[in-house]
């Protein structure tokens, strides 16, 4: 199986990157190819980087409270490019009900403080394996 490509991004003006960097390092240690965007990215910059880098997954880290604006915006921009196959996941200071609302809009799981990195590694790997199975099935049918 080819390595999973993950773009870890910090959208908006929020400068708290401890979580993003810890997660990026953990995903890399788990064998994924990780691109970290650095801080203060606009949704446009993130979407275009994800497409250029051919990312399978976008991991968004937001601790600023702007998640209800920024996460759907990234999703929309990626969809506009016809890429509904990219998983958009992430984490930060996001209240449970906002997580639920975002998931209802087609965003992947969002992880709160205290989540072990193993949990999100497993989540991404499972999602990717399911994608691969799905992608493989029409060809084999």
């Amino acid at each position: 199986m080819r390595p999973i490509r993950v773009l870890v991004a910090k959208p908006g003006l929020d400068g708290h990157d401890r979580g993003a960097k810890v997660v990026a390092a953990a995903l890399r240690d788990a064998g994924m190819e990780v691109i970290y965007t650095g801080l203060h990215q606009t949704p446009e910059m993130i979407a275009s980087a994800a497409i250029q880098e051919d990312a399978d997954v976008i991991g968004l880290s937001i601790l600023s409270g702007a998640h209800m604006t920024l996460i759907p915006r990234v999703k929309q921009l990626v969809m506009d490019q016809g890429r509904d196959d990219i998983l958009i996941t992430g984490g930060g200071i996001i209240p449970r009900e906002d997580m639920d609302a975002l998931q209802a809009q087609g965003i992947g799981r969002l992880f709160g403080p205290g989540t072990p990195t193993t949990e999100l590694i497993e989540y991404i790997k499972e999602w990717f394996a399911a994608q691969e199975r799905e992608g493989a099935s029409p060809a084999s049918a």
Binding site: G12, L13, D14, S64, G65, T69, L70
Partner: peptide
């Protein structure tokens, strides 16, 4: 809030979604 911390007015394009949040 983050826009103020970064020196943006509330009506600047980069402030969208972040005004008064943090």
């Amino acid at each position: 809030d983050f826009p103020t911390l970064m020196g943006y007015d509330s009506d600047h394009a980069r402030s969208e979604g972040e005004v008064g949040k943090c």
